[in-house]
Computed example of a mutant assay.
Amino acid sequence: MRIVVLVSGTGSNLQAVIDAVDSGSLPLEIAAVGADRHHTLGVERSAAAGLETFVVNFKDYAQRSDWDAALLSAVAAHQPDYVVSSGFMRIVAPTFIDAFSGRYINTHPALLPAFPGAHGVRDALAYGVKVTGCTVHYADAGVDTGPIIAQTPVAVLPGDTEESLHERIKIAERELLLEVLGSLAGA
């Protein structure tokens, strides 16, 4: 199984995938890692691991449709079985969703359908939930609305801040992503 991973930031989930592939516990190939902006730690991690990387910098395109087409072309060039959005903070075009329909996976730091969007952890804390968590789902044309593949609950502890809760969710998210990818790869 070949995957392309898309990142916008540090790539902590990506690092877990790289480590699992390197250890032999996750039987897949990371065909490439792409980002939507230059100089992300996720791309630096990937390059250090010897992986092919690409950047389709959102700010380099005058028209959103041009960026969408360039991203689709860059990902499709690697012929992935699955595309993994792991902290990729861009909504992709319907043409991208259609090209990878049922093969575009997203991670989200909340128990969807609750708290979709870019601030799931903050929103869960503000609402006062006692349990939140993480979700791996198939991305569709909505914002965090695609079919759920798997979820893991994470308790909200007294005194939690957005940062402390998010760090615990990231740990659960990494484990869940590895489980899902392992299952898809037939491991």
Score class of each variant (00 low, 15 high):
Arg2Asp: 12
Arg2Gly: 02
Val4Pro: 04
Val5Met: 12
Val5Leu: 14
Val5Lys: 01
Leu6Ile: 06
Val7Tyr: 07
Gly9Pro: 11
Gly11Trp: 01
Ser12Leu: 02
Gln15Ile: 04
Val17Ile: 15
Ile18Pro: 02
Ile18Ser: 02
Asp19Gln: 12
Ala20Gln: 11
Ala20Gly: 08
Ser23Glu: 13
Ser23Ala: 15
Gly24Cys: 07
Gly24Arg: 09
Ser25Lys: 12
Leu26Ile: 01
Glu29His: 07
Glu29Met: 06
Ile30Phe: 07
Ala31His: 02
Asp36Lys: 07
Arg37Asn: 11
Arg37Pro: 05
His38Ala: 15
His39Pro: 01
Leu41Cys: 05
Gly42Lys: 06
Val43Asp: 02
Ser46Arg: 01
Ser46Tyr: 03
Ala47Val: 10
Ala47Glu: 15
Ala47Leu: 12
Ala49Asn: 09
Ala49Ser: 04
Leu51Asn: 03
Leu51Ser: 09
Leu51Met: 06
Glu52Val: 12
Glu52Phe: 01
Val55Gly: 09
Asn57Thr: 10
Asn57Lys: 10
Asn57Ser: 15
Lys59Val: 02
Asp60Ile: 00
Tyr61Val: 07
Ala62Ser: 15
Gln63Leu: 14
Arg64Asn: 09
Ser65Arg: 13
Asp66Arg: 12
Asp66Gln: 11
Trp67His: 15
Trp67Pro: 10
Trp67Ala: 14
Asp68Tyr: 09
Asp68Thr: 02
Ala70Tyr: 13
Val75Ala: 07
Val75Trp: 06
Val75Glu: 10
Ala76Leu: 02
Ala76Thr: 14
His78Asp: 11
Gln79Phe: 04
Pro80Glu: 08
Asp81Val: 00
Asp81Ala: 06
Asp81Gly: 07
Tyr82Thr: 00
Val83Arg: 05
Val84Lys: 01
Ser85Val: 13
Phe88Met: 09
Phe88Glu: 06
Met89Cys: 10
Pro94His: 09
Pro94Ile: 14
Pro94Met: 14
Thr95Tyr: 00
Thr95Asp: 15
Phe96Val: 14
Phe96Tyr: 13
Ile97Gln: 04
Asp98Asn: 14
Phe100His: 10
Ser101Leu: 09
Gly102Gln: 07
Gly102Asn: 08
Arg103Thr: 03
Asn106Pro: 09
Thr107Leu: 11
His108Trp: 09
His108Gly: 03
Pro109Asn: 03
Pro109Ile: 10
Ala110Pro: 07
Ala110His: 07
Ala110Arg: 03
Leu111Phe: 06
Phe115Ala: 07
Phe115Ile: 03
Phe115Gly: 11
Gly117Glu: 04
Gly117Lys: 03
Ala118Gly: 06
Ala118His: 03
His119Asn: 11
His119Lys: 07
Val121Gly: 05
Asp123Pro: 08
Ala124Ser: 11
Ala124Gln: 08
Leu125Thr: 09
Ala126Gly: 03
Tyr127Leu: 04
Gly128Leu: 05
Val129Trp: 01
Val131Glu: 13
Thr132Trp: 01
Cys134Pro: 01
Cys134Lys: 00
Thr135Asp: 02
Thr135Ser: 05
Thr135Ala: 02
Val136Phe: 08
Val136Gln: 12
Val136Cys: 12
